[in-house]
Amino acid sequence: MYEFKEETRALVNLVRRIVKDHQAALETRRLRGEKLTSADYQSGREAARQAGLWGLSLPRELGGADLCLVDRLAVIEENRKCLTPIRFGGDALPDLLHLQGEQKARYLDPFLSDATAICFALTEPGGGSDPARNTSTHAKRDGKDWVINGSKIWVSDFDEADRAFVFARITKENTAGNLSMFAVEKDNPGLIARPVPMLGGYTTHQLTFDDCRVDEVARIGAEGAGFKGAQDALNATRFGNAAATLGIAQRCYDMMVEYAKRRVLFGSPLSDKQAIQSMIIDSWIEIQQNRLMMYTCAERYDRGENTRVDASMTKLTCTEMVGRVIDRAIQIHGGAGCTYESPLAHWYDSQRMSRIWVGASEVLKYRVLARHLLA
């Protein structure tokens, strides 16, 4: 079992209090079928910011918490035990943190002050798990401007964003070293957005760029250097995705234990039944194994070691694990676990996507891990 240091435990307790004070009531409302808006999450978001939990990975000189990866993952894990977690803000792609001059004033400063929200558009309808070599969206110089044409899909958070950071190739060569990132305002007349409903009640968007014109200031970073920044961000996101699934799995485990103890069947609690005990024990073991692996890999990251393979391995095993734990929890709850009045049904829907987002299980297994092991 993995044990947190005292400072990390204090951080986890802080998150737990904020979630209890601000997010638990939202969970109840959602389970009643209420439609929540971003305004409903604002009090928890502000409480987190007042507590210093703003920009978890952001440097202190930019107003962030500047947490090491172990602490960031601990915060995420605790936060995601709630069906309506805190919506932390202030984290951005590393490329944005180095902006200067007009770019900094236009894109970074408003974001850091929470005056604007952003989203990222990398995946394409035909690109899927290999955006480095399957990006058809392209940007072409036209005088002092760039003109973007193409399409992106599965863009999260577009509803609340003020602008999208879009990855496009800048020459005919379709390689990882040929992608640049462009900032496109949401109200740009060349941007057409179509909502795409997803499992779990989420909505992503497909973005179409039809002669979408942006100025030179909107091109972020060096020409052709966009994919490296995206890849670095994906690795950090994979760790975060693993932590989120661990938090959900732990909550499901807690629910199945509590329910098994109080639910009486054939004259005795479910917890007395060997089949139920087996499901509970299997879940506990899987959670502890994955938690130990994730935080051990995070420690390596914090020491400055290369953890690209670690991030893929951790994301793969945690997202596969959470599906099994949720399924066992529903099986123990029976019909009570199949209603949307229970968090279990919501997670059963939404966590199916975790095995696909930021690297499908098969891609991580055979493209990353197998190549590493067989190199």
Rank of each mutant, 00 (worst) to 15 (best):
R106G: 05
Y107N: 03
L108N: 05
D109H: 11
D114A: 15
D114L: 10
D114H: 14
A115P: 00
A121S: 08
T123R: 12
T123D: 06
E124T: 05
G126R: 11
G126P: 00
D130T: 11
P131F: 07
R133M: 07
S136V: 07
S136G: 07
T137F: 01
A139H: 02
A139N: 00
R141K: 12
D142S: 15
D145Q: 13
G150I: 06
S151E: 15
K152E: 01
K152R: 08
I153S: 08
I153H: 03
I153A: 05
V155Q: 04
V155F: 04
V155T: 09
D157Y: 13
D157H: 15
D157M: 13
F158V: 09
D159K: 14
E160T: 14
A161N: 08
A161Y: 05
A161T: 06
A161S: 14
D162M: 07
V166K: 00
F167E: 01
F167M: 11
R169N: 11
T171E: 11
T171I: 08
K172M: 06
K172R: 12
E173G: 08
N174T: 12
N174F: 02
N174Y: 05
T175N: 07
G177R: 10
G177P: 02
M181A: 10
F182R: 00
E185K: 02
K186E: 12
K186D: 07
N188T: 04
N188R: 03
P189Q: 09
L191N: 01
L191Q: 03
I192D: 02
A193R: 09
R194I: 14
P195K: 07
V196E: 14
P197W: 13
G200F: 12
G201C: 10
G201K: 08
T203V: 15
Q206K: 15
L207G: 06
T208L: 08
T208K: 09
D210Y: 11
D210F: 09
C212A: 03
C212G: 00
R213P: 05
D215G: 06
E216H: 10
E216R: 07
V217Q: 02
R219A: 01
I220H: 00
A222T: 13
G224I: 10
G224H: 08
A225K: 06
A225D: 10
G226K: 00
K228D: 15
A230R: 06
Q231Y: 13
Q231C: 06
A233Q: 12
L234K: 04
